[in-house]
């Protein structure tokens, strides 16, 4: 079972078990990690599950998709390693993944 780590803006780390096929967002919500709102419930249409992927994992996680890109692009905090966590699917490949949470969702 893959394990992933989410780091809150204040530095608090949450290392949690994840299931293949779930998204990082649903995994975080299920484990009550604060800092992810996911207002649209995972439809890639609100931008409130924004995370920064640890630089070491950017290649494995991959780039934002065509629907995700416009949502990310409207976020003033958007960075090179920004992703919407509802669009990152857990797989064995991502065992050990580290993402950081922004101070605020927008």
């Amino acid at each position: 079972m893959p394990r992933i780590t989410l780091i809150e803006h204040n530095g608090t780390e949450h290392t949690i078990d994840a299931k293949n096929g779930d998204s990082v967002m649903t995994t975080a919500i299920r484990n009550m990690v604060p800092g992810i709102d996911a207002d649209c419930g995972g439809a890639c249409s609100c931008g409130t599950c924004h995370v920064f992927v640890d630089p070491a994992w950017v290649d494995k996680v991959g780039e934002a998709g065509p629907f995700e890109e416009p949502m990310l692009d409207l976020n003033p905090e958007r960075a090179q390693n920004s992703r919407l966590s509802c669009q990152i699917d857990i797989s064995d490949e991502l065992d050990g993944l580290v993402v950081r949470l922004p101070e605020f969702q927008f």
Binding site: D73, E77, F104, F106
Partner: peptide, 22 residues
């Protein structure tokens, strides 16, 4: 519609971004 929407919105949205609101 995009792309004009995106350009204009991006210019003004900083003022209501959470960092500014704080």
């Amino acid at each position: 519609d995009p792309p004009k929407h995106d350009d204009q919105r991006k210019t003004v949205q900083g003022v209501v971004a959470p960092q500014n609101l704080k």
